[in-house]
């Protein structure tokens, strides 16, 4: 009865931005990124990727409430880096990772008699 509308998972609430960055005022080199309309899918891969970066001191994410469709990613870095740069590097690395999985998957299809999505549509 009071369940939230399903479209709230896809449509940004009015007067909100998909991404906001808040610098931590107490801790140096720390910031919180608030990302709307994302969940554990992205939160967890971002966190795991950030933890591989040796200049990152802290990386964590949370979805503060299951009915509110945003996640918070908190990053603290060593002085030689900063959270925004670390986040950017992390996203670029993830992009590379998935691109590599995509191309390897595609080359594996033909020997197993599978067609790629594009080839199938051309038939």
């Amino acid at each position: 009865m009071n369940a939230p509308d399903r479209f709230e998972l896809f449509v940004l609430p009015p007067d909100t931005e998909k991404l906001t960055v808040t610098q931590d005022t107490k801790v140096p080199n720390a910031a919180v990124f608030k990302i709307y309309l994302e969940d554990h899918t992205l939160g967890n891969i971002i966190r795991c990727q950030l933890l591989k970066d040796p200049t990152v001191i802290f990386a964590g994410y949370q979805q503060p409430h299951p009915l509110e469709n945003y996640i918070l990613v908190r990053i603290q870095t060593a002085p030689q880096n900063n959270p925004v740069a670390a986040f950017q590097h992390c996203l670029a690395e993830l992009q590379k990772e998935f691109a590599s999985i995509y191309s390897q998957f595609e080359t594996q299809l033909a020997p197993h008699g599978w067609r790629t999505a594009d080839e199938r549509r051309e038939m």
């Binding site: 994302e38 899918t41 998935f98």
Partner: peptide
Amino acid sequence: IQEKIRKIEDLL
């Protein structure tokens, strides 16, 4: 997934 990451990269 790549589109999701791209969107955040651009916003950043």
